[in-house]
Simulated scan of single mutants.
Amino acid sequence: MTSRPAHPLLSIRPATADDVPLIRQLIAELAEYERLAHAAVATDDGLRAQLFGERPAAEVLIGEVDGEPAGFALFFHNFSTFLGKRGLYLEDLFVRPRFRGTGLGRHLMATLARIAVQRDCGRFEWSVLDWNEPAIGFYRRIGAIGMDEWTVQRLEGEALRALAAHDEL
């Protein structure tokens, strides 16, 4: 095992369409970590269309340690009716295991916070799996608070199609 320099060089850059295979690979690694590999069905073509097409649905930052791809953050804007402002929603944050402890996760989060402030967002939000104690601890250390009174709701697959097919009154 090679040792890492005492102070690795951290860098963050916006992803480009050329990064799509890397983004898909990082998504696969995140899905494996979250025990959801079966749910990671994104393709390069689909990601390219959704992230770099005519109307991008999200943005991606690539984090590097000493020039090597080490993680990513995928985010998009949501909107708070109560604040009357858009927010920044972090869909996924992932740092490859061998790069954890380098400060890259904090660097990615700080970059996202700066983007939120620069874009006049009222909030910066994300979800975390309730069993992911290391991530929850990290989020608490950077000042995040849990929204325990809220639960995520989801429609997908057949339930989504069934509701969409429901006749209007």
Rank of each mutant, 00 (worst) to 15 (best):
R119T: 03
A113H: 01
E158W: 14
F52R: 07
L88A: 07
I115L: 12
E156P: 11
W126I: 05
T43K: 12
T102R: 01
E68D: 06
P56D: 08
D167A: 15
G137T: 14
E59I: 04
T151N: 08
L26E: 01
R48Q: 08
A39C: 01
A42K: 03
Y33S: 01
P14V: 00
G105V: 02
L88R: 12
L104W: 00
I136T: 06
S3Q: 12
R13M: 09
L74W: 10
E156G: 14
E59H: 15
S11P: 04
E34W: 11
I136S: 01
I136E: 03
H38P: 00
G103Y: 07
L160R: 11
G101F: 09
A162C: 08
L169G: 15
R55T: 13
Y89M: 05
A135L: 08
R98H: 06
L26D: 01
E156T: 15
A144F: 14
A164P: 12
A110C: 06
A144Y: 10
L90Y: 01
G143V: 08
A57G: 07
D45M: 10
T16P: 02
Q25H: 10
L108R: 02
R154N: 02
F82I: 06
K85I: 03
L88N: 04
L30M: 13
E156W: 15
D45S: 15
T102A: 00
H77S: 11
T2S: 12
I115F: 13
T81I: 04
E34V: 10
V152T: 09
A42N: 12
V65C: 05
E34R: 04
G146F: 11
L163R: 15
F124G: 01
G63T: 06
H107P: 00
H38D: 03
E64F: 13
E125C: 04
L9T: 00
F79H: 10
F72I: 02
T102P: 00
G71V: 06
G105C: 02
P97N: 01
E32G: 05
A144C: 15
C121T: 04
L47N: 12
G103P: 05
G53A: 13
K85R: 15
S127M: 11
P69Q: 09
P14K: 03
G122W: 08
G84C: 09
V20W: 07
A6N: 06
H166W: 15
F72P: 02
C121S: 07
F138G: 02
A164D: 11
Q153K: 04
T111L: 01
L51C: 09
A110K: 13
G137D: 13
R140H: 13
H166P: 03
V152I: 11
L36E: 06
A159N: 11
V65W: 05
A28V: 04
M109H: 03
S127P: 00
I27W: 12
